[in-house]
């Protein structure tokens, strides 16, 4: 029994390996892009819109509201990353309702890749907001003694992100596999439904944690900027 889809290799040449994880990811990407293209092909701004458009609008505005509630004032700047993160994990986990489907999120390589994306996005958005100096100074807040702890925090939360998603999804797949061999009727269906719920919750948790990390970096920078401005005003 393969533990992860990485172990199902279709083609390999040295370092380059085309496995089930990549093939499934490409399929999901294709599905998402074609679906988005088809639905947004006939967008209308009047009051009579299609059901698909309505669904997409609800999803996009829902993600926007979530980002805004976490504390990012301009969600349209972050929805590309955070929204795609959420929708990709949702899509990966949703298709577990199909038999023989193995989600890419059940691969530690995929979750690590996503966690690394989040790890890199935090300094990206922080630097974009207040510059590289302003962002790096957040690591020595409130004092420079906190520098190693902040670095450890960054690394550990990235690791936690990767392992949490991988563990939940992989364990779900494993449980379903085991139950299929023990009780092939009914129980696997219930477990699949439970796995679907877990997958959705994990998608939400993963994306909301990414949003929180980004918001923390951005707000630290913003607070610092405000403080510097206030100090300049008082000195002037």
């Amino acid at each position: 029994m393969n533990m992860t889809p990485d172990q199902t290799v279709f083609w390999s040449h040295g370092f380059v390996t085309i496995n089930l994880t990549l093939v499934t990811t490409w399929g999901i990407m294709l599905f998402m892009v074609i679906g988005a293209k088809l639905i947004t092909r006939n967008l209308r701004s009047n009051n009579k819109i299609s059901r698909w458009q309505c669904m997409l609008e609800m999803i996009v505005t829902g993600i926007n509201e979530q980002i805004n509630e976490v504390g990012l004032a301009k969600p349209e700047l972050y929805i590309g990353f955070i929204g795609t993160l959420f929708l990709f994990v949702v899509m990966c986990n949703f298709w577990i309702i199909l038999p023989w489907y193995v989600p890419p999120t059940g691969s530690l390589s995929t979750t690590t890749a996503l966690a690394l994306c989040v790890f890199l996005s935090v300094p990206y958005f922080g630097i974009q907001k207040s510059g590289i100096g302003g962002y790096l100074k957040t690591y020595i807040q409130p004092t420079f003694i906190m520098l190693p702890f902040n670095i450890i925090s960054e690394l550990s939360r990235t690791l936690a992100l990767a392992v949490r998603l991988f563990g939940n999804i992989m364990s779900g797949v494993m449980i379903i596999g085991i139950l299929l061999s023990i009780t092939p009727l009914f129980i696997p269906i219930v477990m699949k439904a439970l796995g679907l719920l877990t997958g959705m919750v994990q998608a939400y948790i993963f994306s909301i944690l990414a949003t929180v990390y980004i918001a923390a970096a951005v707000q630290e920078s913003v607070k610092k900027d405000k403080k510097i401005k206030q100090q300049n005003q008082t000195t002037n």
Binding site: M3, T4, D6, F15, V16, T17, N19, T21, L22, T25, W26, M29, T84, L85, F88, P104, S107, L108, S109, T110, T112, A113, L114, L116, C117
Partner: peptide
């Protein structure tokens, strides 16, 4: 249960 670093890089690019 090991990490395939090519897959990691490919998944980052995919994402």
């Amino acid at each position: 249960m090991q990490i395939n670093w090519f897959t990691v890089i490919a998944q980052i690019l995919n994402f």
